[in-house]
Design a protein around this nucleic acid. Structure first.
Lengths: 127, 127
DNA sequence: TTGCGTGTTATACTACATATATAACAAATA
DNA sequence: TATTTGTTATATATGTAGTATAACACGCAA
């Protein structure tokens, strides 16, 4: 599990870290029940502060991706993340609407956009 | 052109305002060449500070959605926004990847996701 | 028992972003 | 000339991001 961060990005480090882990889980490079590095180890490894890693871990725990057994460490939720419900879908819609409006203004065709999404699914899920 | 903001949201006001305007353009409720309210008028109308409106206008100008003739006011770019190029598509991909990874973790099927995107296109573009 | 490693909490600090409040300036227009 | 426009300049308050130390509580292994 390699973690690649961009310190020049305007996306916060803890956010990038969250994304990397979520992508790792989606790609099944991080398996249910698998243990993640300790906050200190990962922080030291990446070259950031332990609190930044902790922030990412805490939020991922809050969102149901991770379980944190005190003293046992941080593991990928063996049950998997909570299933998408109506509320989740509604929020996703609100997130996507401005993005899609932007592509429309820029003349991207619906088919092109959907193809792009399809490609990303392919990339993550494999064949 | 009604502008609806959520002051409880964790999305910055100027960002919400930008989104509203972009959606307005995409829906053709704001037409090329059409004039927008002055920073003072809109700020007063919504009940926010003129600098917050100005920040949104400036960034939309930077992104090519708006033109700002000094003393003539702010108008929707008559040429339309810059067309999506490879660079734009690449950034869009980077934005969508974590979102899609998240939906995969939550067990949403690709078809469901694509259907949602399709619905949003319908909502914005009309039939 | 004694260390050690774990997550956790607390404090402090710097830097930056968000949002507001005033005030003033420059240019075009009525 | 007076008004309206965007623009610029300060200042202030609040919150977020990130770092730096330090200490605590718990479980496990030597």
């Amino acid at each position: 599990m390699y973690i690649q961060l961009d310190f020049e990005s305007d996306i916060p480090i803890y956010e990038q870290l969250k994304n990397e882990i979520i992508i790792g889980i989606a790609k099944q490079k991080l398996l249910p029940g698998e243990r993640l590095p300790s906050v200190r180890a990962l922080a030291s490894d990446i070259g950031i502060n332990l609190h930044t890693v902790n922030k990412a871990y805490q939020q991922l725990k809050q969102e149901g991706f991770l379980l944190i057994h005190r003293q046992k460490g941080v593991v990928v939720n063996p049950e998997g993340a909570p299933k998408a419900d109506d509320d989740y879908e509604k929020k996703l819609r609100e997130t996507l609407r401005p993005l899609i409006a932007d592509t429309i203004c820029r003349g991207m065709r619906k088919e092109t956009y959907l193809k792009l999404c399809n490609d990303i699914f392919q990339e993550i899920e494999g064949e």
